[in-house]
């Protein structure tokens, strides 16, 4: 991919030729170039009220694009609510997140749509200071006809920690890309996600974690279910650079396909250039256990409900890993509600 090719740039310039597409290795399963024929007019920004999916007070709202920031220092810490709201047309939103040394912050982020057929690019630039921690929890509720690419660039200092959970129902094309520069040095990263993909929807989880120094830990768990003619993409790359010894990295991706025409494409990659590292990955794609499904139905649970129950249990492992209790329960209810529509 040539430098500077991105949806954000295409939106800024109106030039569709800078869209990444199937010829670009990292975008071969999430083709934007072939999908988007022209860039719609820029969205008209407008004020939006309310707390979003997490119901928080005083959220930062970026509707139709724009720029804002979250700064957490040791004194404020706490929770920050951010709502990205897609409006008609094209839009590019940018959020800077700066967690200062020793601070602890929870970012509760929602992606919502008030239109159809929109293009949305969201960039987050996240810096986590020495010994600081950030938990990022994302609920993404895009429109079936929308296109949304959310890119987070995360840089951690020594001893910092970053824990992320993204839950999504996909969109016409949707991608959550997370690029982490991991210094090692007791910094910890957890990158989790779950996708619940209905008919004609698409979601892409792409992560790149680069371990640049020794003694870092990364754990990743992505799970999901695909129904109808939906498609999910998982691209997880962990790079352990020369000298990043004693890195501990594990990555798991496990998917359920609920229909004949659902599709899951997965590419887990471990690129290890250091010694004495402990790295493992697992990747499975399968169907619901038909025997368990019959067992549930024999007990009186109708097929759709039984499928939703078993799928919820499968995906629930991701939700269980959310440490923030309030957010965890909101996420659990969100997953249950979305699955009722899926199975």
């Amino acid at each position: 991919m040539t430098l500077g090719m991105s949806l954000a740039r295409a939106i800024e310039t109106g030039d569709v030729t800078v869209l990444p597409g199937r010829r670009d290795e990292d975008w071969r399963w999430t083709d934007l170039r072939g999908l988007v024929r022209e860039i719609p007019t820029p969205a008209k920004r407008q004020p939006i009220s309310g707390g979003g999916q997490f119901g928080g007070s005083n959220p930062i709202v970026l509707a139709g694009g724009g720029f804002d920031g979250v700064i957490a220092d040791r004194s404020c810490g706490g929770e920050s609510f951010v709502r990205f709201v897609a409006l008609e047309g094209s839009q590019h939103a940018t959020l800077g997140v700066d967690i200062q040394e020793g601070a602890q912050c929870v970012l509760l982020e929602s992606h919502e749509a008030l239109a159809d057929g929109y293009l949305s690019a969201v960039d987050l630039d996240i810096n986590i200071g020495r010994g600081a921690s950030l938990t990022r929890i994302v609920l993404a509720d895009d429109a079936e006809s929308g296109v949304n690419v959310v890119t987070a660039t995360v840089t951690l200092a020594a001893g910092a920690s970053f824990a992320q959970t993204i839950l999504t129902t996909g969109a016409k094309r949707q991608r959550f890309e997370t690029r982490v520069t991991h210094p090692g040095q007791d910094a910890k990263v957890r990158l989790d996600g779950a996708y619940l993909i209905g008919d004609r929807r698409h979601a892409d989880f792409t992560t790149v974690v680069t371990h640049a120094g020794p003694g870092g830990a990364t754990t990743q768990l992505s799970k999901g279910a695909v129904g109808g003619q939906g498609r999910a993409v998982f691209q997880g790359r962990i790079v352990v650079e020369k000298g990043a010894d004693q890195t501990d990295a594990r990555m798991g991706h496990h998917a359920l396909i609920l229909s004949d025409r659902g599709e899951v494409d997965a590419k887990p990659e471990l690129l290890i250039h250091a010694d004495d590292v402990s790295c493992a990955h697992g990747n499975t794609v399968g169907n619901l256990n038909q025997d368990a499904l019959f067992y549930a139905r024999q007990r009186g649970i109708p097929e759709a409900q039984a499928k939703a129950m078993l799928t919820e249990a499968f995906v629930g492992e991701v939700v269980d890993r959310i440490e923030h209790e309030g957010a965890r329960e909101i996420c659990r209810a969100w997953v249950a509600e979305k699955l009722r529509g899926l199975a």
């Binding site: 256990n289 025997d291 368990a292 019959f294 067992y295 549930a296 139905r297 024999q298 007990r299 009186g300 649970i301 109708p302 097929e303 039984a306 078993l310 919820e312 249990a313 499968f314 629930g316 492992e317």
Partner: peptide, 22 residues
């Protein structure tokens, strides 16, 4: 359907009961 039979009161104690993870 199997679940309709169950609602009518048919119950099977399985020779090999299934595990339901989660």
């Amino acid at each position: 359907a199997p679940d309709e039979r169950a609602a009518r009161g048919v119950f099977l104690s399985f020779q090999y009961p299934l595990e339901i993870p989660g």
